[in-house]
């Protein structure tokens, strides 16, 4: 049985690497005031578009260089992580709660609850998600809460579709029938028997959704519709970098690498967790 163990070890390495990056980025965001070498909002036109530390013309203390207003890039990335992680946790949890609940009800009960939920999901799937997000934020007004609510409103269907299918297949299993014969009520069975069995799928999706939320927030701040324009966000830095791409490539490169690592880590972390908790995979 060398195969499965090798798979597990590879899965563990993936889990540790992804978890390690996320923990590092999260701690940096939480302790931003202690870690950030500069004030992320301080402009200094003497220091505009300084290159990163290994290049000629860099200044000590500005490790990754500065943007077109002379603001320190590393400090802005660290502070931008705050918005990214708040949106990731809050929006993904809200989407998860709504989507999983509706999916569980639709999949387990079937019948008309299922028909109503499925019809709503169909309507939601006919919207281009990015346009939907931009529209909602425009309507709610910019701000952290709007962004979180918009993402939750759009992405609950991701949970709903998967959990509905999972709950549906669980509902047909013998153990559900046995529980019913043993005298448990329908809602009791759903929460105590079916829910724990679909939980690994929920956990994996939740982690994946956090990555998606980070991207959507970046897209919204890229089109200048996220939070106030003064506060540093990864998408805002990217928008700035896209504009000065021919003068200062580093303004785009560093937030891009940060986003790549974060999104990749969230999805790998979710996969890793799922494999670890899934009894069949184990």
């Amino acid at each position: 049985m060398a195969e499965p163990r090798a798979v597990t070890r590879r899965g563990d390495a993936r889990l540790w690497l992804a978890g390690g990056w996320l923990l590092l980025a999260l701690l940096a965001a939480i302790f931003a005031p202690l870690i950030a070498p500069q004030d992320p909002l301080a402009q200094d036109l003497m220091f505009e578009r300084l290159p990163p530390f290994w290049m000629q013309g860099s200044e000590p203390g500005f490790w990754l260089g500065t943007d077109s207003l002379g603001r320190d890039l590393l400090s802005r990335l660290i502070y931008g992580g705050r918005v990214a992680f708040i949106v990731a946790f809050a929006a993904a949890s809200a989407a998860c709660l709504v989507g999983s609940a509706l999916g569980l009800i639709a999949g387990y009960f079937g019948g008309w609850p299922d028909r109503i939920v499925s019809r709503i999901v169909d309507v939601w799937m006919a919207f281009p998600p990015v346009l939907f997000a931009i529209l909602l934020v425009a309507v709610f007004g910019t701000g952290l809460t709007s962004v979180i609510i918009a993402i939750a409103i759009i992405d609950w269907t991701r949970f709903c579709r998967v959990i509905r299918a999972e709950a549906m297949s669980q509902a047909r299993m013998d153990y559900v029938e046995n529980a019913r014969i043993a005298g448990f009520g329908r809602i009791g069975i759903m929460l105590r028997e079916v829910l724990p069995n679909v939980a690994p799928a929920i956990v994996a999706l939740l982690s994946l959704e956090m990555g998606i939320a980070v991207i959507v927030e970046a897209i919204l701040s890229f089109v200048n519709l996220s939070i106030s324009t003064d506060d540093p966000t990864w998408g805002g830095i990217i928008a700035e970098g896209r504009l000065s791409i021919h003068q200062a490539w580093w303004i785009l490169v560093f937030p891009l690498i940060t986003l790549f690592l974060t999104v990749l880590s969230f999805s790998q972390f979710g996969e890793g967790l799922k494999n670890r908790f899934d009894p069949v995979m184990r």
Binding site: I245, W249, L252, F260, L264
Partner: peptide, 28 residues
């Protein structure tokens, strides 16, 4: 796995850097 986890928005930005700036052979 990598291509799937990274959304189009990030691929677009990476391509701009690659074929628009580093080795400018396409229009951005």
């Amino acid at each position: 796995g990598a291509a799937l986890s990274i959304p189009d928005f990030l691929w677009g930005l990476a391509l701009i850097l690659l074929f628009g700036v580093l080795w400018p052979i396409f229009e951005i």
